[in-house]
Write a protein that binds this DNA or RNA. Structure first.
Length: 455
RNA sequence: GUCCCCAUCGUCUAGCCUGGUCUAGGACACCGCCCUUUCACGGCGAAAACAGGGGUUCAAAUCCCCUUGGGGACGCCA
């Protein structure tokens, strides 16, 4: 059987990590099995759904490289379908119209809270036929009494829940929109979804959805409820405990593959391997090899994974993510090679390559003490004179030149490396000094030294 | 409160299904040392866990039960 899966976010905010992880699992699983991956937008909450959110979700998925084969299907385009099926269920006496007013429900909820009980809809309209004319109503599902609801989960086995724990839940709201449990089931059935991979927080919804599948005479898909990602405080990830959106990570210089890798490794593993390419993940991913317990999000490790991918990136690919205008004459290849091994994110990378952007660099006032002593100036000038004689500005030549210079003058590397670094990069932190000189090349090197000597 | 899920180092995890090779392996973070021209990278090392109690068995991190702990759900949100 061909695998068909879906990722079904609701456009009520930016894409967050938990959602992204289920998207990744669906994506990997589907690719692994050469199936079809559908994107479906569950915008049945008129109040909270926004186009901006939808745009951001699409943008983020695209940036991550989580591509879908079909969609996005928008649920609000399909209202007539849900309405019709809800009405069918009413006609079959499997659902019913409920005319209870909001105020009445509020009252019941308050009452329940007072008695420290959980509110349950009292089935007031379940069997009534004295329906008011032109009044607003919702459609509720007739949850059967004392029935054992059973469904299976590929990770957790068979799960059984007594129907008495559920009340007559709403499937169609008074604004004519379906509720989540209803539209999800209809779409999963209509779209031929074979595998539903979603967060563990949906486990309790699955019992309701099983009931709906039954009422529709449809076979439910195979469920896999993936463990949740928790914040540092061990509760569901939310803005409160530091959850960031994909956009945030992008802005912080995290690579898409690092997010994919880190998030996939949260709950999934392949022996001791920590770093995966996308192809490797697709190749190795096994839905049956997921951890059942929740995992705490650790930004330090994400950063580390990011640094590992940064190191592995080819200079060609690196050029696409780096935001540096290399000045003409800069040895870009060498610059990238020496910068990428040290950076943890692309922000750092950009920062460390700043000295490559122009012919001259600005030297901050804080370095005056380090640079403008008579000795320093004299040493730099002397080394400069030697360096000018070099035919090639390869690292090796520069190094040899330096060693001869130091020996000749009885100096230590330390005495010249720091000022030279500041003069050439405007910073105390940079790639190795020989690399820096080689990256700049003879011309820019000379310009910067002369500029210093003249100041 | 009710229902559901889960339980190996601080964190992510390997091992669990198919008991013995586990004096429990790896990674992040932390600490120490080394490398060193800065910042880093890297290398080496240390510390660090089978929640508790009962079973089953010659043998349990691994199987079963209970307790405890954690998480999730209980919306005209998804």
């Amino acid at each position: 059987m061909n695998i068909i899966t879906r990722f079904a976010p609701s456009p009520t905010g930016s894409l967050h990590l938990g959602a992204v992880r289920t998207a990744i699992f669906n994506f990997l699983f589907t690719k692994r099995n050469k199936g079809k991956f559908i994107l479906r937008i569950e915008d049945t909450d008129q109040e909270r759904s926004t186009n901006d959110s939808l745009d951001e979700i699409l943008k983020s998925l695209n940036w991550l490289g989580v591509d879908y084969d079909d969609g996005p299907h928008i649920q609000s385009d399909r209202l007539s379908i849900y309405k019709k099926i809800a009405q069918d269920l009413v006609d079959k006496n499997l659902a019913y119209k409920c005319f209870m007013k909001n105020e009445e429900i509020e009252e019941l909820k308050n009452q329940a809270a007072k008695e420290k009980k959980v509110y349950r809809y009292p089935r007031t309209w379940r069997d009534r036929t004295d329906h008011p004319e032109n009044a607003k109503y919702v459609i509720r599902f007739k949850t059967p009494d004392s029935h054992i609801i059973e469904f299976s989960d590929t990770l957790r086995g068979t799960i059984k829940i007594g129907s008495d724990n559920l009340d007559d839940f709403i499937i169609l709201k008074s604004d004519g929109y379906p509720t989540y449990n209803f539209s999800t089931v209809i779409d999963d059935a209509e779209m031929g979804i074979t595998n539903v991979i979603r967060g563990e927080d949906h486990l309790s919804n699955t019992s309701k959805q099983t009931l709906i599948f039954d009422s529709l005479n449809k076979k439910p898909p195979l469920f896999t409820h993936v463990s949740m990602i928790l914040g540092k405080d061990k509760t569901k990830l939310s803005k409160r405990n530091g959850s960031k959106s994909i956009q945030d990570f992008k802005d912080e210089g995290i690579l898409p593959i690092a997010i994919l890798n880190y998030l996939a490794r949260l709950g999934w593993s392949h022996g001791d391997q920590e770093i995966f390419t996308l192809d490797e993940m697709v190749d190795l991913f096994d839905i049956n090899n997921l951890t059942k317990s929740p995992a705490i999000f650790d930004e330090d490790k994400l950063k580390w994974v990011n640094s590992q991918h940064l190191k592995r990136l080819s200079n060609n690919d690196l050029l696409k993510v780096v935001k540096v205008d290399f000045y003409q004459g800069i040895n870009i290849d060498l610059a990238l090679s020496s910068a990428k091994v040290k950076a943890k994110d692309t922000i750092m990378l950009n920062e460390s390559l700043k000295f490559c952007e122009s012919e001259l660099i600005k030297i901050g006032d804080e370095f005056i003490d380090d640079l403008y002593t008579k000795d320093t100036k004299e040493i730099i000038e002397a080394f400069y004179t030697d360096a000018l004689d070099l035919k090639s500005f390869e690292i090796k030549e520069i190094k040899d030149c330096m060693n001869i210079f130091l020996e000749k003058r009885g100096l230590k590397m330390k005495q010249i490396a720091l000022p030279l670094r500041i003069i050439l990069t405007g910073s105390k932190a940079s790639p190795g000094i020989f690399e820096v000189i080689s990256i700049l090349g003879k011309e820019i090197f000379s310009k910067r030294i002369e500029h210093y000597l003249e100041s």
